[in-house]
């Protein structure tokens, strides 16, 4: 019985802030061929685009920090925590 990531993500509660807590600098990403973020993100939030850029959506972020630790391009990922009370809220983890 295979569980898809979409099914998994539906089990997680997020209180989405209207402001993103992570900013991705598409200009820097265009020159990156490694694209570690695309693979390591546990919520698959980094999607490579045909034009060489990266599409990022902060809404279902676990706030784990893996993306910026994996990224070796200075300034590509500007990372902070969401506002207090917003973001992921684990109930069982």
């Amino acid at each position: 019985m295979v569980t898809t990531l979409e099914e998994r993500m539906r089990t997680v509660r997020f209180r989405v802030d209207d402001r993103p807590h992570i900013l991705v600098n598409a200009g820097i990403c265009k020159d990156c061929s490694v694209r570690a973020c695309v693979y390591v993100c546990p919520a698959n939030l980094f999607v490579p685009l045909d034009d060489g850029g990266i599409l990022f959506n902060y809404e279902e972020c676990f706030e784990c920090g893996t993306c910026y630790i994996a990224c070796d391009k200075e300034g590509a990922i500007q990372w902070s925590y969401p506002r207090g009370g917003y973001g992921v809220t684990f109930r069982e983890a």
């Binding site: 099914e7 089990t11 997680v12 919520a43 069982e92």
Partner: peptide
């Protein structure tokens, strides 16, 4: 979860919550 030594242990379990942390 699909490894032959693990699959019988998790069989029938439904996902209550998925999570990640460093």
């Amino acid at each position: 979860k699909a490894h032959p030594a693990v699959a019988p242990l998790v069989r029938g379990g439904t996902v209550r919550e998925y999570s990640a942390h460093i």
